[in-house]
Write a protein that binds this DNA or RNA. Structure first.
Lengths: 354, 354
DNA sequence: CGCAGGAATGTTTACGTAAACATGCGTCGC
DNA sequence: GCGACGCATGTTTACGTAAACATTCCTGCG
């Protein structure tokens, strides 16, 4: 009576209501039903050769009957890998983050990897460390951090060993692999474009100062103006929202003929403010955005903006972690994804200048 | 010589360059270093009682030295659960989906569950089934499907057994647990609000016809008009985008005094079109949106809209799956999350009427 | 002084899978 | 006709953890 009946799928007849196992059928169950060994089931399950057609059919039938599906925990334990990547991010409310996440998920899926999400509500040091720790204990082979604000630098976050990390949009290129859009190049292209159109100088509607992306775009704007020997107008700040762009739009002086906004949403608000003030775009004033969100082609007027290739960023992130996982290779360093200026109708030659 | 040396951490002296194990340290490694049994390490790791302070300290030190972190695959295998929920969704481009996902991730994290993302690029039957299969093999205890279009109904998608499913925004309430916003109630509140303001009838700018949410909002709009005995104007269709709302705004006839848009983005485009046409909102025409996205309070004029509580939806989804996982309970059925009308400045009494 | 009792720690085992090795049987070559 | 080979399948084992059970040792009481 001490046989393995209690482990069987069905009621074992004795000892009351049979503890009705909750876990799914295992290979052993399938093997028993098909009258083969569990190893043969394993071979069928993995498509390994060396199983005669008839046996395979019988095993497959048994699998179907029992609703067998492989236990990935056991598989992961055996293989030493989870085929899963963790993504830490701070919010899902900015276009860039969401699009990047989307691209990461797609790329990962294409490589046969799943994505485990680890959102961190408030980006405090403690929370980030907590997230890293939890992810470290989670079933992931690598981690991608979508880091928009200054954090990794300011403290010694201890990453779990044996887990590879790639960071998006950060300054930590000396310690981690960083994938980022070429913010500087994009911003520079935007400013140069406006200068070439004959504008004396270019105002800048910047994003929040603690954002890496905003910071780089601002730096590049400044550098471009300085190199061209132009006067540098005061900075305007927004918080990425259209509303903040609208507010900033009210502050732009009448003699300003060109504005470079750090993202398309703020540019949208800016356009609205200018419209309300009766300043025609692009005849009186030119506007360039950043991101090339889908809607920007439908703004009034269609927005000249800097296109970011989020899909490519996602792809490189995934390639980066997987590369590290597989070859042990690829130390710290920064990979830049190129941007390109998309010229639409919100920019034109300066009104009075040549 | 047949001892366990080969299993040890360091090189065993013979046979060349020692295969340098890549997996992290295991309990056995920690145990060896601390001079205790692996069971004691387990007890320390899980905070179980019955470990003297001195031993605990020594074990913790060994853990730190080896950079030990528990192997979640082994844990999952032992426990029979992964503490992970899978989320299937079709795109990350609509506000609602993203916000819901965010809420789900937060709720899940609070319950100690992680989220595994499974995006399905093109929502064809095949792809969905594929996603379900892959997720079935994945390390998840339950699945939440964010289903915006008609799919589950039209075929027999076979869900992996032993995995609980909750669906957001679907008609499949007879077969799955469905959590949804009270689309009908919200739409009805919007229409009633406009009728109470004395508008003869209300036009409707609907979302894409294959969207469940759009469909329900349209139905409720229709029902409300019919019950009030009003004439039913022709339907306008958009695709959720501001641009489509803008286009629809050009088609609204001059004698129309009230429009109910199926989401805030389309309402935004609508406002722009009306503005360009010189129709003042709300003096000449009232507009109501749906969703209450953050920006809607900053539209011109601030938009009266139907607030959706995405956080609550996410919470209920997680509660739903976890409930099913834990109690086996909760069969099919639909849970509605209430909506509420937020009155701002885009609605006013009808121009000529009462 | 000896033994009961309990606290601290160790040993065994099972979770489900799959690599490595073992077996058994049929067929082909000489 | 008999052994070697190879193919289909079975058996053993290990992956890392933790429950269940076993052992040791110390304390306190009779």
């Amino acid at each position: 009576m001490e046989d393995r009946a209690g482990v069987g799928t069905a009621a074992s007849g004795a000892e009351g209501p049979a503890p009705r196992r909750r876990r799914g059928a295992s290979m052993a169950d399938v093997a028993r039903l098909a009258g083969v060994s569990s190893q043969t089931v394993s071979r069928v399950s993995n498509g390994s050769p060396g199983v005669i057609e008839e046996t395979r059919t019988r095993v497959l039938a048994a699998m179907r009957e029992l609703g067998y599906r492989p236990n990935s925990a056991a598989r992961a334990l055996k293989h030493g890998e989870f085929r899963t990547l963790g993504v830490i991010l701070f919010n899902l409310s900015t276009t860039g983050n969401v699009r990047t996440l989307e691209a990461i998920a797609d790329s990962a899926a294409r490589e046969g990897y799943a994505i485990t999400l680890m959102p961190v509500a408030v980006p405090t040091q403690t929370d980030v460390r907590g997230a890293f720790t939890r992810l470290g204990e989670l079933a992931v082979d690598g981690i991608i951090v979508i880091m928009e604000v200054h954090l990794l630098d300011t403290s010694t976050i201890s990453l779990p060993p044996h887990v590879q990390v790639v960071v998006v949009d950060s300054d930590a290129g000396d310690r981690y692999t960083v994938v980022d859009t070429d913010q500087r190049g994009g911003a520079r292209a935007a400013v140069d474009h406006l200068l070439e159109l004959g504008h004396r100088t270019v105002w800048h509607l910047a994003g929040p100062p603690d954002s890496f992306a905003a910071q780089r775009r601002t730096e590049a704007w400044l550098a471009a103006l300085r190199e061209a020997g132009r006067t540098v107008p005061p900075l305007l700040f927004g918080d990425w929202s259209a509303e903040s762009g609208y507010k900033a739009g009210k502050l732009v002086p009448d003699d300003c003929t060109a504005v470079f906004a750090a993202n398309d949403q703020m540019a949208l608000g800016l356009l609205r403010a200018l419209h309300e003030r009766g300043r025609r775009v692009p005849q009186d004033i030119s506007v360039v955005g950043f991101d090339d969100i889908p809607e920007s082609a439908s703004f009034i007027p269609p927005l000249t903006t800097v296109h970011q290739d989020f899909a490519e960023v996602g792809r490189r992130c995934v390639d980066g972690v997987l590369g590290q996982i597989r070859n042990q290779s690829a130390g710290p360093g920064t990979a830049l994804v190129p941007t390109r200026l998309v010229r639409r109708s919100s920019t034109a030659p300066a009104p009075s200048a040549g």
